[in-house]
Nucleic acid binder design. Structure first.
Lengths: 201, 201
DNA sequence: CAAACAACGTACCGATCGGTTACATGACCC
DNA sequence: GGGTCATGTAACCGATCGGTACGTTGTTTG
């Protein structure tokens, strides 16, 4: 994830989840919707329907909980990217193009608030475990895009990847400040143009 | 401003500034460097070297102070944009290109942390005076870019402006998550490419 | 059946949050 | 000198912050 709105925690009647899982669900939803610093642990445990010690038994501290939420959300990003890649076997250019069109589309959904990791980095500008986790994902994201640019046959994979990253982060933030009908809707086309310029076609 | 690092409050020995001005200076520096929610009023008045009542006499509340800081910072953005426009009279395309190259260059300076208004919108996702102020600037920014795109002779000024906004917000955020040698350095070239695609040349 | 253990919630902790009050001080102006 | 205005000091407010001591419950295990 890291750029989709968390699905509402499902009722735990079918699979009686542990208190820690409920905390993680609640924290993910609340952090994404309201921002990390704006959400207190009290509110998290209330929404999760558990006691405060359950949070601290499972995660040790609010910071550790934040990191755990970010780690879970990172998986979502890779899932969606891998999905696009799998949809166009042997054609990383088509995969990446599809991914950007999909990202623009996803940004229209209500409650969308961009990339949780980027938001976290903005909320935690000073050195901290949260920032380390957020920046770590961003580095892996950049590496992966660079690899894909190389696989596309770009002369300068890093340059192409970085140009696409500008668009990607642009989606995340413009959606938040300009709404669902803002610049983010041009992202697919813009990404295609930047790819075409460095690859031809 | 809104994307340059605040200059350190100058010593008030020459022009004995009012307490409210010192508060505004300190708040601008602290908010930009550490984030808004991370800074308490106590720290602000300490750095400003004034008493807490001075803050509340001048601004009424922390929220009002935040709004005042954002309003001051907005002026900086218009100054820099107007400067680029003035440097290329009658050539909005050259002006905008220069602006993007300049923005990429500025993003390298230490302490750069992107656009204060975008950051504020991330920190305040729920309706509030702060968010209203931040989003108001972002709307004016988009309108101005659209006007310039129209002046360039773009067939679809809104489309070009929005593509450039993706790059612009991309600069702001990628600098924060990827550092001064990250994707932001490709912004000038990317902006030129997107402009050329819609204008020819 | 009972001891042991894991999981959990109630109630509380000190610290800090944004904001306020009362008052002393000093510069300026007539 | 007396008044006004802007300021700083310091103590304080209720609310909320992240975090914990401790007792209760429910299940397992002998």
């Amino acid at each position: 994830m890291s750029d989709t709105v968390p699905i509402a925690p499902k009722p735990d009647e079918i699979a009686p989840r542990r208190a820690g899982d409920k905390v993680l669900d609640a924290a993910e939803t609340l952090f994404y919707a309201q921002g990390i610093r704006a959400v207190g642990v009290e509110e998290i445990v209330n929404v999760a329907g558990v006691g405060k010690p359950s949070l601290y038994r499972a995660f040790g501290s609010k910071d550790d909980l934040i990191v755990a939420v970010l780690q879970r959300q990172e998986g979502g990003f890779w899932s969606r990217l891998d999905e696009a890649v799998a949809a166009y076997p042997g054609d990383p250019r088509a995969a990446l193009t599809a991914y950007f069109h999909g990202a623009a589309e996803r940004s229209k959904q209500p409650g969308y608030r961009g990339c949780a990791h980027s938001n976290a980095a903005v909320e935690y500008p000073e050195e901290s475990a949260v920032r380390v986790e957020a920046l770590g994902f961003k580095r892996r994201q950049r590496e992966r895009l660079t690899d894909m640019a190389a696989a596309m046959g770009a002369d300068d994979p890093q340059a192409l990847a970085d140009e696409l990253l500008l668009i990607l982060e642009g989606i995340y933030v413009t959606r938040q400040v300009h709404g669902p009908d803002g610049p983010a809707q041009r992202a697919g086309e813009a990404a295609e143009a930047l790819i075409a310029r460095r690859l031809g076609g």
